[in-house]
Design a protein around this nucleic acid. Structure first.
Lengths: 332, 332
DNA sequence: AGAAAACATGTAACCGGTTACAGAAAAGGA
DNA sequence: TCCTTTTCTGTAACCGGTTACATGTTTTCT
């Protein structure tokens, strides 16, 4: 591949002039410009991005670190990040941390060595102290307010409130909550939202809360355990959609009917919820918008610098579908 | 961040010596090595990957271009690629082409400029001629044999045969096929597999084949059309799982029962098939293994060079679940 | 002991760009 | 016309590494 010296030679000018033409800065006589452009197109020259990066310490590369792209919540996020990045001339490196702090740190170090310009970190496990070594621009997803980094979140608390109230409105008399892991911020907020609604009900009992990881398998066991313990439960608010799907499977396996015997609502709004039967009610996060906002925020920090950490919280919306439709409000 | 000259100065040696220590090549006296290592750890030095790349023209970066990470088939592939890449010290750039040739070419050019070491291309739309400008190592997914590039495929034809025969064995008397787009290779192979089994049946008719894109929405319309046209159809082989899910929804909306009135089988084996109700029978591709193989092949081509193009075809497996279980073979 | 081989380290060119600086040419102003 | 300003272009240092080559020091072997 042709380099800048080849072009300079062919055009009969110096490399500096070629550089000026390519970057459209400095003075260049019209006739020279034409000569250079001719040489450029004849040699099919385009500047070596590595060499450029070595100079300006910018690679036009963003890192996206997430627990697991295989978790259906993340592909849409990744897509948003990639698209916005591309629109701004950036490229996206995808890293799976499997939720491991170690992996996260490895990835961050790698991205630093490779001179990534910034990082979007969607992490369960991150603790602030571990990050302080890094001075790369970084935007956090789902991490809550934080003095050093901007962050993007959905309103998990109010979403949980909506979900729980929705179950009540549908006529549920005893609502259980399958919560996510105790150390995950979003799970904690959703749990708090649930509690804030039901705490003062006469049927409320701490045993109605059971913890599970954000996946289907564990949710099945948890649900069975829950319903064995108390068969008067007629509503479940699951901390995310994958858990909710686990509920649905467990419920079906013991022969109960959804939503008549028991209503189920999830959280996240992954597309799967629309594909399963019965269709799952859920609290939808504007995932794409969140990824978009995170990326724009990051790019802005990279390009114009950061004044202060921003904390942006997105509203969630209730999607009412079959799995909670005890009152037949949905007409297909 | 400290650079090699800082380390050299601190250790009282030349940069060449530091480089030798870092890369463990050439001769270095034990005492010198210790001095240098001390300086390295004190300064927390790690070599600038950009500068290294500028020298050896290798970035330890792979590009993965795929139509849409949002399509549930791809996250697992992406994960495999990322994991294998990481294990070998590579990093993965993810690119969505949205199935557009233009976008694909843009991404390839960008990856070239950024000195990616190789590309894994999972493409529907690619045509050989467009690619000939590139001399980057490249492995193709789902593209069939090809003189210039190695490729990884699943055995789509034999999978389609398995699916169709499975429906027959379950007692289906008239099997329709919802095929994927005509210009997509995998879709064509699957169609051929279907035809090879049913061609000579007395009930066979070209109208039993209908085309749809690889998504749920179109599949719903297609299914309804199909069943309106011929209500004696009692089995559908869908060209992929997303289409199959569309079938399920359409069938349900007209009040038929799966699998009693009609059996449905998909293709791909995405995890969704296990989560929906009824659980979907499908032909499972070993997606992770395919991504793994593609990445290993690519890295091998990058590091040891390529002798010839390899064409590796993976076997698929039938997963028999509720959606085709007309004979009650499955005991839960 | 002397020569050859192995070990140890530094100098400087190079990868492919950008850019500060300097000098020359053209344009503008008095 | 002469001086100042603006335009134009080239030289060379620099970004942060790697490595060929030269040179010097030890070891090893006869």
């Amino acid at each position: 591949m042709a380099n800048i010296r080849d072009v300079a030679k062919k055009a009969g000018v110096s490399v500096a002039t070629v550089s000026r033409v390519v970057n459209k800065n400095g003075y260049v006589k019209k006739s020279t410009l034409e000569k250079v452009n001719k040489a450029i197109s004849e040699l099919n020259y385009s500047p070596n991005a590595i060499a450029v990066s070595l100079n300006n310490k910018k690679t036009k590369t963003l890192g996206l670190i997430l627990p697991d792209i295989t978790n259906p919540f993340f592909p849409e996020l990744a897509k948003a990040v990639e698209e916005v990045a591309n629109q701004n001339g950036y490229t996206m490196i995808l890293c799976n941390s499997n939720g491991l702090l170690e992996k996260e740190m490895e990835h961050i170090e790698m991205l630093e060595r490779k001179y990534a310009d910034g990082i979007i970190l969607a992490s369960d496990s991150y603790t602030e102290e571990r990050l302080k070594g890094t001075d790369l621009p970084m935007v956090l997803l789902d991490r809550g307010v934080n003095p050093n980094h901007s962050s993007i979140t959905a309103n998990n608390f109010s979403g949980a409130v909506m979900a729980t109230k929705h179950l009540l409105k549908q006529g549920c008399k005893k609502i259980a909550h399958i919560a996510g892991p105790k150390n995950v911020l979003t799970a904690v907020d959703r749990l708090k939202g649930y509690q804030s609604v039901v705490r003062d009900s006469n049927w409320y009992d701490g045993d109605l809360i059971i913890h599970a990881n954000y996946n289907t398998k564990e949710a099945i066991t948890a649900t069975k355990k829950l319903l064995e313990m108390d068969s008067s439960i007629d509503g479940i608010f699951a901390s995310n959609d994958l858990i909710a799907i686990g509920c649905l499977k467990a419920i079906r396996s013991i022969g109960w009917k959804v939503p008549d015997d028991i209503a189920v609502i999830g959280f996240d709004g992954i597309s799967l919820t629309d594909l399963i039967i019965p269709q799952l009610s859920t609290i939808k996060q504007p995932v794409y918008e969140m990824g978009e906002a995170a990326t724009k925020l990051l790019i802005n920090e990279i390009e114009v610098g950061k004044k202060e950490s921003l904390f942006k919280e997105f509203d969630v919306t209730l999607i009412h579908r079959e799995s909670t439709d005890k009152r037949g409000e949905i007409n297909e």
